[in-house]
Nucleic acid binder design. Structure first.
Lengths: 151, 151
DNA sequence: GCTGAAACGAAGACCCG
DNA sequence: CGGGTCTTCGTTTCAGC
């Protein structure tokens, strides 16, 4: 599934403002509004675009404390076990299995330090978790929602 | 800056689909379309909502390789130095200063391993960087764009 | 915060290269 | 097959209440 240059420019425009009108985007990329809509529909059908969402200031939502938890798993834990175990936590924003010492890296948003600690303890108590190591975010420097064009 | 229950339900609806109509959201939360719009406008003005964006499948955009780079900085490096140094890289999706051994944690999307390596080398060569430690993502398990309600 | 009218954008049918 | 034009319909937006 490969996107051409026009598709990428449309996605880029939507990444900056997902509520821009198709006509407006079209005038930027040199297409008519229906043409833009057709491409967006196709990108959605292909799964390249998975939806539209709002960018929220975490602090405004009451999530003052951000951190990462590295999880060291017991033997015979599959990635799917980890996913199933973590998806029940609303505080978990992202999770991936990773190379290196730890098995998984989990990003957390919590309302405050006590809340973070409570989540950490519950995750550390999961059956598949052997031990954890956590890192707190001091200040968020950059938070993009889409990356730029890869070379 | 505190949001009330109605605001949170509106933000939640927009988080799931930022292109839903205000009337549609209104019927869910029990408000008319203009009332919803006024609240969204206010949330934007207050900075609680910082924009609307598209959810993209990284693979479809050609970003096959994801990873994290831990940065150990030289002395006398301010968070702002790090931010200024990193914002020039389109491959950097997020960056934060963190507690623990490393000074900053940087999330990267690259097209492939060679691309990732190239970015890593360039970042490692930045003036403020003393050394780096990097971790590759094996499989993304969970990727939410907004976290759930904090207790 | 609701209602109604006017401006605007979305979505589909249709035609053209 | 992909893009442009036109028309219809729904949505946004602003007034007044």
């Amino acid at each position: 599934m490969r996107l051409n240059d026009l598709d990428e420019r449309i996605v880029h425009a939507l990444a900056e403002d997902a509520r821009r009108s198709y006509a407006d985007i079209g005038s930027e990329v040199g297409l008519s509004a229906p043409a833009v809509k057709r491409r967006v529909d196709r990108l959605r059908a292909e799964g390249a675009i998975t939806g539209f969402t709002v960018r929220v200031d975490p602090a405004a939502m009451g999530w003052e404390t951000e951190g990462f938890i590295e999880i060291y798993c017991r033997h015979n834990t599959s990635p799917d076990d980890i996913r199933r175990g973590l998806e029940r936590y609303p505080e978990v924003v992202s999770a991936s299995t990773v190379t290196g010492d730890a098995d998984a890296l989990v990003q957390i948003f919590a309302s405050d330090m006590r809340h973070f600690e409570r989540v950490l303890e519950r995750i550390a108590g999961e059956r598949f978790v052997e031990r954890t190591k956590s890192v707190l975010v001091l200040s968020p420097l950059l938070r993009r929602f889409t990356s730029g064009a890869p070379a």
